[in-house]
Design a protein around this nucleic acid. Sequence first.
RNA 1: CGGGGAGUAGCUCAGCCUGGUAGAGCACCACGUUCGGGACGUGGGGGCCGGAGGUUCGAAUCCUCUCUCCCCGACCA
Length: 438
Amino acid sequence: MRLTAYFMPTLKENPAEAEIVSHRLMLRAGMIRQASAGIYSWLPLGLRVLKRIEQIVREEQDRAGCQELLMPTIQAADLWKESGRYDDYGKEMLRILDRHEREMLYGPTNEELITEIFRASIRSYRELPKLLYHIQWKFRDEVRPRFGVMRGREFLMKDAYSFDLDFAAAKRSYNKMFVAYLRTFARMGLKAIPMAAESGPIGGDMSHEFIILADTGESKVYCHRDFVEFDVLASAPDYDGDLEPLVGYWTSRYAATDDKHDAKAFAAVPAEKRIEARGIEVGHIFYFGTKYSGPLKAFVADQKDEQHAVHMGSYGIGVSRLVGAIIEASHDANGIIWPEPVAPFKVGLINLRASDDACVAACNQIYDKLAAAKIEALYDDRDESAGAKFAEMDLIGLPWQLVVGPRGLKAGVVELKARKSGAREEHSLESALARLSS
RNA sequence: CGGGGAGUAGCUCAGCCUGGUAGAGCACCACGUUCGGGACGUGGGGGCCGGAGGUUCGAAUCCUCUCUCCCCGACCA
């Protein structure tokens, strides 16, 4: 993509409305614009990141045997009355009347709807287990939206739901999601720690929050330092096998959010291993048994043809929140530092002299070769000062910057700079491309 | 929902106390000089001073109401 053709309205100064760093950087990098409190438009650069994250989430859900579907944003109130949550949910639920004065709502979550879909078609234990998910916009009318996309009223969430005959089976589904979450966050370059958590208004009694440690986090958390060293991606999990050892390993040390904090148990952790910090919740998994399947009459027959309310779990990942969370976890004074798997482009091609024909020709050639090699590049072909270009590239945080200028061309070299380390390497064109391809 | 703060140019803000022709920097446009880490000069465009009422000869400025946004708390993915 050529920057002269790209819609990327960056800002030099910090917008007054933005307090925390991820919000500031997202606005300044031209990723989002606020439409109203807690509601954002995603501009091209931001949307690219959002889609990258969404895709990683999708791949890991699929890998774990969870199947994607898509439920609507607008739901009829009836089901919610059936489950009893129409009244319980309160003012956080955005209620709408359609032209027939029928009560509708903008879905804050989807337990009711998915249970309805399930109960309409599944009758037998032989069709279990089932794991279903979708990635859809939600709306929760927060009293005080804040922190940019990290606590918006409208937000993109992946929510998955599991259906099993009994607790033991439900626990296996829970474990699948537990492991899928570890992998999902690790692939985004995040250290997400599963912590014992309150289950909140969704209900239930087996629940973990996946938390990223960050000073700007909303919740106070306590955990064992070992978690920071744990490596998830080392072994690819066998989702058909027994995941209990892996889950057991990840729950073997103390980790709890403020709500579930047990000061005594925490005190038993050696002092040098105690982490008392703030955290951002990026995922939350629950087992809630028959809380919805009971009232909504989602029953299945077992081997003896006895009817049982299905045991359910729900599993959420804040996809849009992750964009902010990743920035909170990965930035410096100059701007964002994207982990490569979620970066909007892999490399920024910087033409230091857009008024120099030879330099332009060289850049065009490099740009074509990058495209041919399927390396996504943002080509800064503007006639701007070098300083301005570097500053803007640092701000938007692409993993690599490929710098092409007359001086280097004379010596037959281009410069490749890693955004994260700041390391600069001189390369021939071929070796630079090879480096980027590896 | 309680407490606090702010709405003036695309962005950051001054002006308001003490009423009298709407400002600066950045951004934008034109021309020229520059050009390896946010260049410089000259000229230019852009504002119903959030909205509505009121006071006044006269309101960005004073008064009343209202809307919006932000921060702290409570609540929450």
